[in-house]
Simulated scan of single mutants.
Amino acid sequence: MNELLAVFIFFFAVIDPIGTVPVFIAVTRGHDEKFKRKVILKAVAVSVLVLLFFVVAGELLLNAINIPLSAFQIAGGIVLLLFALSMIFGESKPESEIKSLPNSTETAIFPLAIPSIASPGAMLGAVLMTRNTEYSWVEQLITSSMMIAVLGVVLVLLLLAAQVHKLIGDSGASIISRIMGLILSSVAVTNILNGIAHYFGLQVFT
């Protein structure tokens, strides 16, 4: 049970559902409810497909180009750490992604699905949390289920975006995003240490 909770919290941190709410409000401002609902469903569906692709094919791609998983784990941990630090010390997720709004109707894809929901950190996390050398297919299925559960939270929060934003405001979303960054930085350091341990055949950190 604790492991399931840990996986859920990990994906909650890298996907950051609450931080997506201000981004969604910004990209759909001025549109009717039918349009907003269409954007939500499309964005979440695309995010599910993208992240499941990395669960299924991420490690296969690494093996195809002869990159050791331990090396990817270290590199992925470093990238996750930088991503987390940017959440803590830089602009928060809502602030940075609202600035990148395109003049396009494809807002469901960019910036909402990618990089707001299926962020680079989430893509890396999907690979790192479903390594074939460490996890059975049952464990990978459970991990994928937790990831999809977080995306379900994203779906619910976006459908209730107006109420959520009214409750927490931009400042609240920024604070929560930074807290998620702190949690994510701890996970990233653990991944780096485990990658080093795997490479040198040392004890794995848990």
Rank of each mutant, 00 (worst) to 15 (best):
Trp137Met: 08
Val127Asn: 09
Ile109Phe: 15
Ala43Tyr: 00
Pro22Leu: 05
Met147Lys: 12
Asp32Met: 11
Gly30Ser: 09
Leu60Ile: 01
Val55Pro: 00
Phe53Val: 15
Thr107Ala: 10
Val79Ile: 09
Leu112Ser: 08
Ala26Trp: 12
Leu101Ile: 15
Gln73Asn: 00
Leu82Ile: 14
Val79Glu: 02
Lys42Gln: 01
Ser119Phe: 02
Val23Phe: 02
Ala13Cys: 05
Phe54Arg: 05
Glu59Tyr: 12
Phe35Asp: 08
Thr133Trp: 07
Ile109Glu: 05
Arg29Lys: 06
Ala113Ser: 12
Ile142Ala: 13
Glu97Gln: 15
Thr143Gln: 14
Val21Thr: 06
Ile109Gly: 05
Ser47Val: 06
Phe11Ala: 01
Glu106Val: 08
Val46Thr: 10
Glu33Met: 13
Asp32Val: 11
Phe54Thr: 01
Ile65Ala: 03
Pro94His: 08
Val27Trp: 04
Thr143Glu: 03
Glu91Leu: 15
Ala75Lys: 03
Pro94Phe: 06
Met146His: 03
Asn103Leu: 14
Pro111Glu: 03
Met129Pro: 11
Lys42Asn: 15
Phe53His: 02
Ile78Phe: 05
Val150Thr: 01
Leu49Phe: 13
Ile148Thr: 07
Leu60Met: 10
Leu49Cys: 07
Phe35Glu: 14
Glu134Val: 04
Ala108Val: 07
Leu52Cys: 07
Thr133Pro: 10
Phe53Gln: 08
